[in-house]
């Protein structure tokens, strides 16, 4: 599916550019786009190094274990394939917490760490596990308690009540998260039932 989407983006881009008589844009955009991709990664190197260092301090201090134990009812329900003391859960919880607090640049390092830990439990290294799909579903649909960036934009634009969107955002993200996790839950169980009956 991603192959198709990627192909669609590039080909329609090139065709439209050619149609508008701006074919020179293609070369220029490809090179500058490639550079931007690497620049994002360079920014990420410092962030990753810093946050993974802090995560290890928190782990050795036992903070992650305490947090994981508190959230165990949820993790058992949504990540049945992950042992309840596995380090992946700590990273998943930190990623979701960072998303809830609107700390975008802390969320990515924890998320990548979580994927690395989940991959250790994966019997087929090129195929996503159920736990990975659940994690990504939770990550992309996550509740947002502090949409700090957009409130800042609204303040800058001279809003009379910049924070009035906080409640609606919380509602919309909450609804999205419930619907998405429910869909994932049904999907997971539907596929498991089908696989089991196919095996008989």
């Amino acid at each position: 599916m991603l192959n198709l989407i990627w192909l669609f983006l590039i080909l329609t881009g090139i065709v439209v550019a050619a149609f508008n008589g701006r074919i020179d844009l293609v070369t220029e955009t490809f090179f500058s786009g490639a550079n931007e991709g690497v620049k994002v990664c360079l920014d990420l190197i410092g962030l990753m190094t810093l946050w993974l260092g802090m995560l290890e301090v928190a782990r050795q201090a036992g903070l992650i274990r305490i947090l994981a134990r508190l959230l165990r009812p949820f993790t058992v329900l949504f990540f049945p394939g992950v042992p309840s003391d596995h380090p992946a859960l700590g990273a998943i919880i930190m990623n979701i917490s960072a998303n809830i607090l609107g700390l975008g640049n802390a969320a990515t390092p924890f998320g990548l760490k979580a994927m690395e830990e989940l991959q250790k439990l994966n019997p087929r290294p090129d195929t996503a596990t159920d736990a990975m799909c659940t994690f990504l579903a939770a990550n992309t649909s996550c509740i947002v308690l502090v949409p700090a960036t957009i409130v800042g934009v609204r303040v800058a634009a001279g809003s009379a009540n910049a924070a009035e969107i906080v409640g609606p955002t919380l509602f919309a993200t909450g609804l999205t998260m419930v619907v998405t996790l429910l869909a994932d839950f049904c999907w997971r169980n539907f596929f498991r039932v089908r696989r089991r009956s196919a095996g008989r």
Binding site: I10, T29, G33, G37, V38, L112
Partner: peptide, 23 residues
């Protein structure tokens, strides 16, 4: 971990940018 994602970032950035810039 950061360096491992360079190919994916470049692939995405190139595709998204041409899609947007071309109109």
């Amino acid at each position: 971990i950061a360096v491992r994602i360079i190919p994916y970032l470049v692939a995405m950035f190139v595709a998204i940018k041409i899609f947007r810039v071309s109109g």
